Computed example of a mutant assay.
Amino acid sequence: NTSYLDVDEIAAATSRPESVLGMHFFSPANVMKLLEVVRGKATGNAQLATVMALSVKIGKVPVVSGVCHGFIGNRMLSPRQAQAHALIMEGANYWDVDEALLEFGFPMGPWQMADLAGLDIGWHRDPARIESVRDALCAKGRWGQKTKKGFYDYDDNRQRTPSDEVKAVIAEFAAKEGKPQRAIDKDEIRERLLFPMISEGALILDEGISQRASDIDTVWLNGYGWPAWTGGPMFWADHIGLATVVAGLKKHGLPVAPLLERKAAAGETFN
């Protein structure tokens, strides 16, 4: 299932809610190892154990998640995407946003990822209705790698080049929003992309959606290309110091999860 279905709502419509749980595969499912196993509030222990065993049998790395919008992985991806958009509205070059994550060790950045997935996914298909940068690009036939143009232009070997047309679209939207433009360096880009993920991970732990920080790391290492040598987002946060993360979030005017704030103040770690 997708990460935006409410497993508890589905279970409530059945006479056997203990037998309802989610299996969230990652695309392409024949390649990606991660499987989020979503435990509903009524899911039975035996049923959960059966699916965990099945997951291993089919070669997956299962992680138990509670029910929430986006589960673990996509919920943490959401604030990163929000900051990626905010950065390009404030003047950051979209290719610099991607490069900042490539230099950190990700296989691709947010705008490369959007091009690979397809910008038209979820698009309303009305070229006259332009409400976002993505709408504007889709209306121009820029659907991503499959049309050889999305945020980037692509050659026959799928090599990317920044597009003047896309730069103009972004500049137009930034002007509409009245955003003053400024140069933004890659250190700020990285902090604003990665630190909000740590804060969201702390909320996920505090709410009991994930049982332990290492489960969050397993999700991001096996499903999202987080660079393995850093140990995963929560382990990396421990390594650089939770106080560093809190200070960075506050510097950029971004929210700090209560659990993150408490652990940083106490000199503690997630793992």
Rank of each mutant, 00 (worst) to 15 (best):
N1I: 13
S19L: 12
A12K: 15
K176W: 14
L205F: 05
L87K: 02
K251R: 10
A257M: 09
D187S: 14
G118S: 04
G267M: 04
W236S: 07
A247M: 03
Q47L: 10
E165Q: 04
Y4K: 13
W111S: 03
L193D: 00
G73S: 07
L137D: 01
N45D: 14
P17F: 00
F173D: 06
L205G: 01
E172F: 08
H124N: 14
I240Q: 10
C68T: 11
F104I: 09
H69Y: 13
P79C: 01
Q211W: 14
G150A: 06
P233C: 12
E165L: 05
I130Y: 11
G225I: 09
R39Q: 15
D185L: 06
R262T: 13
R190P: 02
G225N: 15
S19Y: 10
S199A: 13
S55V: 10
P79K: 00
D187N: 14
K167T: 07
Q181M: 08
A175W: 11
S214W: 11
V67W: 09
K149G: 08
V63H: 08
A243G: 12
Q81K: 03
K57G: 06
V61H: 03
S132I: 02
E165R: 04
K250S: 10
I189L: 00
L5P: 04
G73Y: 00
I72R: 07
V245T: 08
A183K: 11
A265Q: 15
D153V: 13
R129S: 07
T2G: 11
L5N: 10
K146F: 09
V51A: 05
M32Q: 01
E99K: 10
